[in-house]
């Protein structure tokens, strides 16, 4: 599966569009991690626990998108866009969407 956030891929022709493919996941914070984040809020700097949490979540969302594309018969995903939104005080939604295509 080829993933790209560009609209076209040089050297390949898009022969068929399978439509919008998407994946999302909502992750809640962890109490331990939030405690560390509270300390970091005094001195500033990176919140490593959160970085890892969101990276894992984004991988999962991407994986779901890939599964959907495979189910629809696509062999590539183009124009990938990521979006994150805080839905409640302790949880974020990671959303990834793109167009599934068949490359010739």
């Amino acid at each position: 599966m080829i993933l790209s956030n560009t609209e076209t891929i040089p050297g390949y022709t898009i022969t068929h569009h399978v439509g919008l493919v998407q994946g999302n996941t909502v992750r809640a914070k962890h109490v331990g991690r939030d405690l560390m984040a509270g300390l970091k809020n005094i001195v500033g700097g990176e919140l490593k626990g959160y970085t890892e949490l969101l990276e894992d979540a984004r991988k999962e969302a991407t994986q779901r998108m890939i599964e959907e594309a495979q189910a629809k018969g696509a062999n590539a995903i183009v124009n990938v866009r990521f979006s994150t939104s805080a839905i409640t005080a302790g949880a974020s939604e990671l959303y990834v969407y793109a167009t599934g295509v068949v490359l010739g």
């Binding site: 790209s4 560009t6 040089p10 809020n41 500033g44 700097g45």
Partner: peptide, 22 residues
């Protein structure tokens, strides 16, 4: 938005960081 033609499939890459508002 356009990629140069290299003949190899491209790859999606990401990098992220979460920072604290101190």
């Amino acid at each position: 938005k356009t990629l140069p033609a290299t003949g190899n499939p491209p790859q999606l890459v990401t990098g992220s960081v979460v920072i604290a508002f101190d």
